[in-house]
Amino acid sequence: MRNRSLFTVLAGAALLPALAIPALATDAPTDDRRDATTYQARLDPVPHHPQADGGSDVSGHATLVEVDGELKVEVRAYGLSPLLPHLMHIHGELEAQNECPGPQFRKGGVSDRLIETVDGLPSYGPIQVTFSTEGDTSPAAALSLGTAPVADADGKLAYQRVLLDVPNDVLDELGDLHIVIHGSDLDGDGMYDATPLTALGAPLEAELPVACGQLEDGDGQARGHGQGQGQGQGHDHGKGHHHG
């Protein structure tokens, strides 16, 4: 019953009709097309205290290809809470320094040993794009669990979609932005508990960041600001999730 009520709270009002998802256009005149630009991100664990996050060790890789204002997104992640939806976003403050949060961001909120979404905002910035499976991809859909990708029974997630409505200013700044994956079944009971609620008004388990990675352009370089000292390097325990 907790799962059902959680989906009602987070997803019910946010579900919108699905967008059509055509393949990347190939028949436009050559002189009207821009060159395709590829961005990649290695996703590393958000460095929560290992005794607080159950040994979460989420990793993965994301590839984004931008051409003619369309953004093809592919994400593969491992070590996620099995059979549960995982919110995914592009985070970042446009024209500002952005980085994944380090352990010093464990402060405030529900637990001083966890880095909640709001705790990490000074580091990786606000949500710019939502990686939903259908419908809205704007920040308004950020907490819509009903359209979030779902991990399989082994905690693996494969996501692919062409996004048509990404704002031009976000496309122009992709090399300075980040991808963040959320969601951790902290107590291993197979569901996201409805409480406690975080500063976002969302259940902690559903919105907890678990992996983060900076987008880099095709030559492997982050544009503009580079990495700062707040960059998270993951856990030092090397353990994955343990679900009973």
Results as ranks from 00 to 15, higher is better:
Leu145His: 10
Ala25Glu: 08
Ala23Cys: 07
Ile115Val: 13
Asp57Leu: 14
Ser5Met: 14
Glu207His: 07
Gln214Gly: 09
Gly102Met: 00
Val210Ala: 01
Ala14Asp: 13
Asp119Gln: 07
Lys107Phe: 00
Gly244Arg: 12
His182Ser: 05
Asp176Ser: 08
His49Tyr: 03
Gly120Lys: 08
Asp217Ile: 09
His89Asn: 15
Thr198Asn: 01
His61Asp: 15
Asp185Tyr: 03
Glu74Cys: 01
His235Gly: 15
Leu15Val: 15
Gly201Lys: 08
Glu116Ser: 10
Leu143Asp: 11
Ala151Gly: 06
Arg161Phe: 08
Val75Lys: 04
Gly224Asn: 10
Thr37Asp: 05
Leu87Thr: 12
Pro203Ser: 09
Val170Glu: 03
Gly244Cys: 00
Leu177Arg: 02
Ala141Tyr: 07
Val73Tyr: 04
Pro29Arg: 14
His91Val: 11
Leu83Lys: 13
Leu171Asn: 02
Leu19Phe: 05
Asp189Ile: 09
Ala23Thr: 11
Leu157Ser: 01
Val170Cys: 05
Leu43Pro: 00
Val46Phe: 04
Asp176Arg: 09
His89Lys: 08
Gly201Tyr: 03
Ser59Pro: 00
Val129Ser: 06
Gln160Asn: 11
Gly240Glu: 06
Pro149Phe: 02
Gly135Tyr: 09
Gly12Phe: 12
Ala153Phe: 00
Leu177Thr: 07
Ala141Lys: 09
Pro209His: 02
Glu216His: 08
Ala18Gly: 08
Pro139Thr: 12
Arg42Glu: 13
Lys72Met: 11
Val170Arg: 04
Val110Glu: 09
Asn3Gly: 06
Ala28Ile: 10
Asp53Cys: 05
Pro122Ile: 15
Pro17His: 04
Gly220Lys: 08
Tyr78Lys: 13
Glu207Gly: 01
Leu16Met: 13
Glu134Ile: 05
Ala13Tyr: 00
Leu145Pro: 01
Ile115Ser: 02
His235Tyr: 04
Ile179Arg: 03
Ser138Met: 10
Thr195Phe: 11
Asp165Met: 01
Glu134Val: 09
His237Tyr: 14
His178Trp: 08
Pro82Leu: 05
Tyr39Asp: 06
Thr147Phe: 00
Glu95Pro: 01
Gly54Glu: 06
Val118Gly: 00
Asn168Val: 13
Val75Met: 07
Leu143Ile: 15
Ile115Gly: 04
Asp119Lys: 01
Pro126Cys: 08
Gly146Met: 05
Ala11His: 07
Gly190His: 06
Val162Asn: 11
Gly188Lys: 04
Ser5Lys: 07
Gln233Ile: 11
Ile181Thr: 13
Ala41Asn: 12
Thr37Glu: 12
His61Thr: 15
Ala148Lys: 05
Val73Ile: 13
Ala28Ser: 02
Ala153Thr: 09
Ile179Lys: 07
Gly244Asp: 13
Asp172Ile: 08
Leu71Val: 14
Ala140Tyr: 06
Asn168Gly: 08
Tyr124Trp: 15
Thr147Glu: 14
Val65Ala: 06
Asp31Met: 14
Gly108Pro: 02
Phe131Ser: 04
Ala62Asn: 06
Gly135Met: 05
Thr130Glu: 11
Ala211Asp: 10
Thr147Ala: 10
Pro85Ile: 13
Pro203Arg: 03
Thr30Cys: 09
Ala148Asn: 01
Leu6Trp: 07
Arg106Ala: 02
Ser132Glu: 02
Gly55Met: 02
Gly79Ile: 12
Gly12Ile: 10
Asp189Cys: 02
Leu204Met: 11
Arg2Ala: 15
Asp57Gln: 09
Ala202Tyr: 10
Leu186Ala: 03
Ala25Gln: 06
